[in-house]
Design a protein around this nucleic acid. Sequence first.
DNA 1: CTCTCCCAATGACAAATGTCATCAGCACTG
DNA 2: CAGTGCTGATGACATTTGTCATTGGGAGAG
Lengths: 207, 207
Amino acid sequence: MNGQGEPVRVLLADDEHLIRGALAALLSFEDDLRVVAEAASGPEALAMARAHRPDVAVLDLEMPGADGVTVATSLRSQLPGCRTMIVTGHGRPGHLKRALSAGVRGFVPKTVSAQRLAEIIRTVHAGGRYVDPELAADAISAGDSPLTTRETQLLELAADGAPIAEIAERAALSPGTVRNYLSAAAAKLSAENRHAAVRIARSQGWL
Amino acid sequence: MNGQGEPVRVLLADDEHLIRGALAALLSFEDDLRVVAEAASGPEALAMARAHRPDVAVLDLEMPGADGVTVATSLRSQLPGCRTMIVTGHGRPGHLKRALSAGVRGFVPKTVSAQRLAEIIRTVHAGGRYVDPELAADAISAGDSPLTTRETQLLELAADGAPIAEIAERAALSPGTVRNYLSAAAAKLSAENRHAAVRIARSQGWL
DNA sequence: CTCTCCCAATGACAAATGTCATCAGCACTG
DNA sequence: CAGTGCTGATGACATTTGTCATTGGGAGAG
């Protein structure tokens, strides 16, 4: 499908120069792949994508400005022809779910080899999908988040250890209401208190 | 110093295959550097170092088994001739201090280019030192940890949001004592409670 | 030897937090 | 339209946590 005369145009987005540069160098060995743009942040990735119209965007999950899934969501509407895939260091189950519903076609941990990554880029470009088996298993066994929108939102605000009063102020809610929601969230996650609940939600990629 | 006939022997340790492989490929372009061993974990890095006796060990800070600084400390006694350097994604001030006192000669964020990394490897091999200016500035302005041994230890036990009773049990201390130490720690860090204190200590690399 | 600092503990008190019952509005579903 | 579930709030209560004063032992410095 990918003719010798028309290499796959790839966008690389990762905030770590070292990895991005190294990756670009490795992919350049593949005759049918061509890195046409690089970016070090979420917004930059979007701008580069608009300017260079890649066939496949390889996005790091953790980036300043906007994370990989957010970028993928934007790309889906702005550049429908561009396939997206996520590369990540530590993949939580929830992240995979968010990514898939954002139209991401590949989800790969950074523990794969460059060879393998190149193959996956080709697969994704050809319209296929690839999800790391390990992560997929985790995601399936983990299930969906039992938390409601507000509960999740308040857990996020509680994530830095702030007292209830501060959370209530930042959420423009009554302190009593905040306590109720956080109590409910902790109960759903079988946590002893809201701080432990934050940890659990984080580990599942639910926050 | 590094003659054409004797390239610098390098050990690469990073748990992410993708980065390690890419890095190895990039460094192979430099005629005077030769990657003689790779490792994906702390213990493996030690074993590889003993087997291949590299001139310079490039260690990722976050690795399973044993972190980069721990490995560097062990290397210092087991292979005194081997220079060590740390590469890290997010470098906290405290980590830099720990690394330097472990005899590490290079401390570099992953945001540098491969070119630059190669230069730094040469510098370190020649007996020089290199510390990222940004990280150095942070470390200097941050100062030392004001926490005592026990305070730090108890903050670690409190890191997962466990209630006081559980922390006391795990530390084999009286609950009252635990509260006293955590209260003192929070006060020293100007935190509103122990959970916020954990966050602050983490951000400084003090835990 | 005295002074200081860390460790460990206790008791008391105030403040924050977790838990529960209850209520009301709103949106959606069958 | 009745039922369900999310949201937002209040009040009461028990528990947990934070704070402070105080004590005592041990290690190290001057």
